[in-house]
Design a protein around this nucleic acid. Structure first.
Lengths: 191, 191
DNA sequence: GATAAGTTTCAAAACAATTTGAAGTATGTG
DNA sequence: CACATACTTCAAATTGTTTTGAAACTTATC
């Protein structure tokens, strides 16, 4: 007979879960992941699957799947609540930790795969660079040069992610702010 | 009677267009945009819509739509070819220019919208922060604090994008490399 | 170990995005 | 101007993704 807290969402909760949902979807995750995370993030106490189901009007299946996906990303945690039988959940509140985890697992994998592919493409061009046919040779030369650009860019991206991630373990904000300061002296900007 | 160049794609072309397609899709665009751009990027001469249709086995409609979308993003350009009736296309080859354009138009819009929404949510909490009910007050306080975090993060992201974009007009690589150098001295990394 | 509360799974349904191809439009050519 | 070529549009079809809800499963409790 616990308080069957109908508690309609506050405007702030509705708005934030909506916006985070969109942002996260834009980012390549499912919208519900963002919505669920946001609700947990704004909740003073841990919430049960059923609380979430009511708050967001999702099916129980959807809640279950969303929560386990969020758990796999380490952005939501199961917590033990005193004398309660069902599971309760809380959101990771260290924003940078979350972000760096995603960067590290998802973006880096994607980039890594691309780098490999570019390198293989470069290798496959090697033979053609000394083709007898001058047309072929020229084409191979151009492609080599361009693919190299792509590969270099990909590596640059990887290094940037690495730098963020390795800092963000605690909190990257100071680093980023510092970088921005540094960049300003390199390239002046409008106010 | 122009050379009806059947020209099957080279392995390098196939591989790169595939990988760029995936990357771009991951990034939130349509896969074909990446594939088409990549083919153009690797082509020594401008290509016609029909060349692309053959190279990638797309329908004429798909090619047309993809090209116009790419053109809207400014990453593909129509070029005038001497004595040819149909349109020819080339890829933007300045990678940083492309990227900064996308950052500037797409990511910044998205972030801007989120920032607005967070700020509105904060405003809507103001009344509740002085509610007579202590429970309500505490909840409002917590949410205020958390949403502030989100808003700050969003602003940080926006500033970072700004810095990149305003530099990248020419070529951001030096800036990024510089930043990486700077970060290394702030936070030592494994080799 | 029977029951009940809670959770997970998964096939089917709903929904969303992309692609096709044929009809329509525009433009240059004889 | 009539024709042919190139390009665009768009409704329908295809393909892909997300959500549902009911059945299967787990686990705590009596």
């Amino acid at each position: 007979m616990a308080a069957k807290d109908k508690h309609a969402l506050w405007p702030s909760e509705a708005a934030v879960s909506d916006v985070v949902g969109r942002l996260i979807e834009f980012w390549g995750f499912k919208r519900n992941m963002g919505r669920v995370w946001a609700i947990l993030y704004l909740s003073p106490e841990p919430m049960s699957a059923d609380d979430l189901r009511q708050a967001l009007r999702l099916s129980s299946g959807a809640v279950s799947m969303t929560l386990s996906e969020l758990a796999r990303w380490g952005v939501v945690r199961k917590v033990w609540v005193q004398g309660e039988r069902r599971d309760f959940f809380t959101a990771e509140v260290q924003l940078w930790r979350m972000i760096s985890r995603v960067f590290n697992e998802r973006e880096k994998a994607e980039i890594g795969y691309a780098i490999e592919a570019f390198d293989e493409a470069l290798a496959s061009l090697e033979k053609l660079r000394s083709s007898p046919d001058p047309k072929t040779r020229a084409r191979a030369e151009l492609q080599h040069q361009r693919i190299k650009q792509l590969a270099d860019l990909a590596r640059l991206g990887r290094d940037l992610l690495d730098a963020l991630v390795s800092t963000a373990k605690l909190d990257a904000e100071p680093l980023v702010r510092f970088l921005l300061g540094a960049s300003r002296s390199t390239t002046p900007r409008a106010p």
